[in-house]
Amino acid sequence: MAITSIKNLKEFSTNNDRFEGAHLLCPGCAHSMIVRELMNCTDDNLVISSNTGCLEVSTAVYPYTSWDTSWIHIGFENSATAVTGAEAMYKARKRKGTLKDPDAPVKFVAFGGDGSTYDIGFQWLSGAMERGHDFTYICLDNENYANTGGQRSSATPIGAHTSTAQAGTHSYGKKQKKKDIVSIMAAHGSPYVAQLAPNKWKSMAKGFQKALETEGPCFINTVSACTTEWKFDPKDTIHVTDLATDSLMFPIYEIIDGHELNILYRPKNIIKVEDYLGAQGRYKHLFKPENKHVIERIQSDIDKNWTMLQRREEAKI
């Protein structure tokens, strides 16, 4: 496998981009930062499939495609199924000797938004994980169905305002907690599962390379700040992601072989979750006096989760 150097940004920047501009994602969208970084991590041929979602509708608007690799879109739920089918066919043709260039290294990658990963494509993803194909699934987690107008998904955190879980006099937004997809995928016995963020480009690039190198089904959940539905200024994408990782709303860690948890980023100064919530318009109702208990609950959930992660890392379980 031809992995590219990620020693420092200068060397990383000598890679030739395979994700072209003039796609129609919003200005400041983190989706394309993540996709570009994945494609710059390796020189191998890539076979990519995308679930329906922001990434799919914006990068393949007829008559244009933004992908310089093989790319396929089928349905909302089955990017994992499509890419594992391609992988099975590739292996079969390699065995039969009917490939044009059998020695060329090929990697199989599936992209999905959080709606298609946590909710709609969950069964298909679980099936692909169980069958044990050699592919990497990357979830671009922006915590709502941003493509269709910001409905709640099971990735939306408690207290967030969405178009179908609105904040008002009788409600403080979504009342349910976020699904812990990383643990669910680790429980499938996947050889490499991680949660990464684009603001820490090096740990993200390392995680991507590890997932691509590892044989078997790997899963990566990436934080993708959504300027439209999280309601912040497009220029602040990296700033908001910084706040997310430093407040431990999104801890960055990996789980190898279903156990052996490693924390990849420990913030020097752990900030209060209010700073993260206050930077976004979708949480602004939480700062009313009657909703203070929601912030306290979010903070206590974060603290418990961080303690759990640290203990798991210590005990290597």
């Binding site: 030739n16 072209e20 501009g21 020189d43 191998d44 008559p63 244009y64 495609t65």
Partner: peptide, 22 residues
Amino acid sequence: NAAFLKPEEREYSDFNSYTATV
């Protein structure tokens, strides 16, 4: 494999969004 070609060395088709503008 486009990974080994710089953008100026590639032969983009009219379908590639590189040829479009935003």
